[in-house]
Each structure stands twice: as C-alpha cells, then as structure tokens.
Nucleic acid binder design. Structure first.
Lengths: 345, 345
DNA sequence: CTGAAAGCGCTAACAC
DNA sequence: GTGTTAGCGCTTTCAG
C-alpha cells in the first residue's frame, strides 16, 4: 500500500518572494541573510519577518552556483567502523559546525582506488576543501585537486619533508618510543603485527619506528618477525596465532594499532597464554577498546579529538584566506597498562 | 612560512568549452554525461575525449540548480563514536554509492535540539532525502520536511502505528525475548541499565520489553530497578555500582545496549563479583565489543549491516519514484554467550 | 544603505 | 540523434 510522497513538486518561496513581501530588492534580502550588518535594522526586521512568514530558506544549488562555494568540507577516512577515526571525525565535525560548515564523510575501506573515486565524488559534490588521512597516494590526485582549486589538509601524519598542509603526529618516533620500552624490559624476540603497509604511510612509519628501536639496542632490524594483515580483530588474532607457532615465538608482540592488539590478546587467551606473564602485547592509538579488555592494553595515546578539532580550524582558515599552514605535529604519549612486562627468565 | 594555495581562482572548463572543442551543443555534452545511451557512439567518443583533454568536470552548484537535486542523502545518527551506528552507516553508504548517491552524515549527540538543527542544515545543504533514527521527534520537524518535499526514512525502529516509511526491528519484542530467558533461568531480582528514555523510542521500547517479560512471569513490572543514564561505558559502570549497592542487589542486570553492558561488566570485575556466577549481565546490539570482553556478552543480535543496506535501497526508491514504502521489520536473535547463567541458589 | 541587472554553469523541454 | 534556448535562484558588482 504505497502512497505518493508528494503530489506535486513543492513550490517553495524564493528570494524574490521574500523581496516582494518585504518591499525591498532581492539584493537586500540576500544581504540580510549573508551580511546583516550591511542592512539597516528596520529594513532587516521587515525582511526577516517576511522570511519567517513565508518559511523561506535559500536554495542550495542556486547559492552554491552564485557564491562558488558550498560550505561543505569533505573527509575521507579509511573506515567508519572503528573508534580511531570516528572520534577524531566527530570532533572535526563539531568544530566545523561552529564555523557554519558541514562535513561530508566517505570511507575508502583502506583501498587507494576507492579513495581516489571518493575524492572525485566529494569534489563533484561540491566540497570546498578536503581532509585526507596520510600523504601516501597517487600524485595525480594532488594534481587534480590543485587544478580544481580544492585545498587539502592531510591528517594523522607528520612528515615535514612533504610540502603539504598537514596535522598529525610522528608515528615513527611514537612507535620507536614504545618499542624502546619493550626492549628495555629485556625482550629480545619481538614480533610485530602491522596493518598493510602498502599505501599506508602511518603503518610503514610505525614499522620503521620498531626498527629504529631495535637498532638503538644494537639489534638487527631484520630479526623483527613482521606480519602484515588487514585491519580487524580477527586478523590480529590470526597474526598472533602465526607468531606463536614460530619455532622460537616472540616474548613480546608489538601491534600496529589497538584493534590488532585486541585480536592478539584474544588469541593469546585462546592459546592458554597469560598476558603479560607468557607474552607481552602492545597496541597503538589508545581507543576505548584498549581499556575494556583485561588486562588493559599498553599502548600509545594519540590525541584524536584534539587532532580533529585542530584539523577543522586549519581547514576553516584554508578555505577562508586560501593560505596553506605549515605542518603541525601533535604529541603522543605512552600508556603503560597491563599487557607489558619483562619476559620470563 | 605560509604560501598562497592558488594565486588566482582556478578557471575551470565548462560545458560550453567541452561543447566547442567537441563541435557539438551543450545539450549533447550534458546527455553524454547523464544518459549516454541517448547519444550516438561516435559523438559520444568525441565528447568524452574533449572532456578528458580539458579535464572537465561538472559544476556542482549549477547542476543542482538546474536538475533540482543534488544526489546527496543526509543521515543523522545519535553518535559516530560507536560501532552501533558506524556499521550500519558504512553499509548504507556503500549501497548508496552503487546508485551514484553520496552520504552526508551528521550526529546529534543524542540531543533533540542538535538533531533539529542538523536536519535543517542537511536540508539547507541540499539533501535529497534523509535517514533518521527512531520516530520520536518534534512533529514540526516532519512538517518542515514535508513542506520542503524531502522524503524521510526512519531506521532502527519498527512501529506499524507510525505512518511513516521506516525500517527497523521490534525493540520491545526483542528485549522481551531476552528478559524472558533471564527470568526463565530463575532470576527474580532484575536490574536494568537503560539509555536515557526521553526522546528515544528505542530505549523506551526496550524497557517496555523487560516489563512485558516480567508480566509474563507473573511479576510486577514496578519491581524492576531501572537506571537511566547517558550512553557510555563509564555510565554503564556507574549504573552497575548503583545497582550493586542496593539492599538486595539484582542477580541479573539487563542493559539497554552493549556499551552500557560492557561498563557494567567492568564494574562487576572491579567490585570483585564474578560474572555470571555472582551476577548475570546482558546487552543489546551485538557489536564487536560484545565478543571482545571476557566473558563474552549475552546479547541481542541486530542485523546492522543489513539494515543499512536495505535502508539505502528504500531511500533510493523514495527519491526515484517518490513512493513511500511500507514499514519493514527485520529479525533480531538472541546470542547466548558467557555473561548469563542461573542465579546462585 | 539600497536597487538594478548581469551572470554563475547546467538541465530539460521542445524543435528539428 | 542533436541543437536551441529558457530558465533554475542566488550573489555581487555597479550605480545611485
């Protein structure tokens, strides 16, 4: 029993209608809406009451066409399905809202092709600027964006060698700091479960960080037993199973992120290993999950909310004055919780 | 050391440019882009190569203005910060993408005022249709949407008494089913930790479900010790602490969702209570969190992905033919895991 | 401070 | 199958 939603296209009031009712020109109505200060109070009141009585609200397409901007900021994140990005994006959106901008989010499922497609879609949907995660992508994409005059801000990565507006943290240094603690406790057989490194500079930097720490302790980075796997709890568990099946299993497993670490933790439990007595496990990100598991995860805290908020402010400036800010680097810090201890002797 | 992003506004090619280069009219170019089948292959190739050489892509505002639609579908969810909505929204977006539509998401932080504001924003941003969670909101909002001719689909709730397009599940029956199992095991002192019921029909329905089950077992619904609290792990823990401090603490705590249940679980552990020996705990939603905790949560599985996908298909039809579908009810099912057992005798 | 009017770039009748 | 053309509703000079 379906019914028509509307029998006729709704005939909404236009600027001209408001102008007629208020007895002014359309230009004046437009000004009342966009820069009220330029209009005399009396006139403005008349116009605003006309707006109210007619239930007028501006047509988006017309406004976008004439003003040559939409007030829409696009963001493409690898996935919406976990808290890592959700938190930052939520803060990003709240902050954009304060400046009257709207967020248009898409997710790439960690696929460069899908991401490229989404970028084109967002630009086609009128995004005034874009937030992207990490620097790593086909240069053609940056050319495209530059040609279309769409400002881009890169988040989640700090890399001063990339001459692009960015806000993030030093993935490599942060992970090196954590791995250093692991080594300092006496671990010598280290395993690592990382997200897929291809097209993911954050993952690569975190791996490089572990290598750095190994070198710092006079160990050969090649001894790191590295497993790369897609992003999910199940994959973390799978990776852990592989590591533990090694002839000499690692005494500590450093994970590229908390989700993989939680999977590893689950597998350890399933294998009858106690953490951290039998094996230590560390994460990265410090999402809610990290404190929900038992024992709670030792991990690297990333200021997601701050990054989201700051990203919004940078982007607002970029669309405003067309100026590219210098790269911003946020601090991370280590969270020592229950999953890391010295190896059994 | 800031630099200009662009020295001049980019002067992008227009339809007319493409038409000139290809030696056809703008109408033909438009057709090539929108309904290629209507154009002869030879002409089309010529046009498409002109598009490619010029690097043309359509102006969003102009298109929206002329076509009177944007291809943008808005969705407002209570929060992006947890998996409940993220999963469904991800599926929703993927499915919309197949129809060439783009998702514009906003979140209301469970606040009716923010939601109303977001609805206006999304409509102002040109959303062709809206996905909203639950029926419960100021009728003025529905009037506004009807006046603007914006179709709405309600998700997460099935309520045939509401004459609105919707897709969801029977929150009340599902929760009654779970509570019935709890009672069947012999529990007689039941506590409940629910999300705030004001403006949240899903929460109210779940409470009603517990009441139903109580009645079904000849018990007075008034004996249910109910705690309402905002949505977070910490709040779940807090609620649990309150329940356990009661003169006769409940032997089973039914939670309105998995997030609250995980908080309750955490608090139980902290209070030195073992679950389910000392107290049983149940959740609702079956998000990833539910299987990560130990013991894993007994909960109600909701087909989030299916709901998201199906919602997208319904909405595509609604914007396509302007027809309102009849309400759709999806099945939920109980997941018995480790947190529910008979009470100690 | 306000008005007139010229587009903005595209779509969709309609005509051929 | 393709071209002509009239808007779509707003913003923004430019005059006054």
């Amino acid at each position: 029993m379906n019914r028509r939603l509307s029998d006729t296209a709704p005939n909404l009031p236009t600027l001209a209608d408001v102008a007629r009712v208020a007895g002014v020109s359309t230009a004046t109505v437009s000004r009342c809406l966009n820069s009220p200060a330029q209009v005399q109070t009396a006139t403005r009141d008349r116009v605003l009451s006309a707006v109210a009585t007619l239930g007028y609200s501006p047509n988006f397409g017309a406004r976008a066409l004439a003003a040559r901007r939409t007030g829409i900021i696009g963001a493409i994140i690898p996935t919406m399905e976990n808290a890592i990005f959700a938190r930052a994006i939520q803060a990003f959106q709240e902050e954009l809202h304060l400046s009257g901008l709207t967020l248009l989010v898409a997710s790439s499922s960690y696929s460069p092709e899908i991401e490229a497609d989404q970028i084109r879609t967002l630009v086609a949907r009128g995004a005034d600027a874009l937030l992207l995660i990490g620097h790593d992508r086909d240069p053609g994409i940056y050319d495209f964006l530059a040609q279309r005059g769409v400002p881009v801000l890169i988040a989640w990565a700090y890399d001063p060698t990339q001459a692009r507006a960015s806000i993030g943290f030093d993935n490599r240094r942060a992970m090196a700091g954590l791995a250093d603690e692991v080594l300092r406790l006496g671990h010598r057989h280290i395993g690592m479960i990382s997200a897929l490194a291809a097209g993911n500079d954050r993952a690569r930097d975190r791996i490089a960080g572990v290598h750095d720490a190994l070198r710092g302790h006079g160990l050969d980075p090649a001894t790191l037993h590295l497993i790369e796997t897609p992003y999910s709890i199940a994959n973390g568990a799978e990776g852990m199973a592989q590591l533990m099946a090694l002839p000499t299993p690692p005494t500590a497993v450093v994970c590229g992120n908390d989700v993989l670490a939680v999977g590893a933790l689950q597998m350890a439990r399933q294998l009858g290993l106690s953490v951290p007595q039998d094996v230590s496990i560390t994460g990265f990100d410090d999402i809610e999950l990290a404190t929900v598991v038992d024992p709670a995860l030792t991990t690297v805290h990333v200021p997601h909310r701050d990054m989201g908020r700051a990203a919004a402010r940078l982007l607002v400036d970029m669309v405003g004055d067309g100026v590219a800010p210098t790269p911003v680097c946020l601090d991370t810090n280590l969270c020592f919780r229950g999953t890391l201890a010295a190896p059994k002797t």
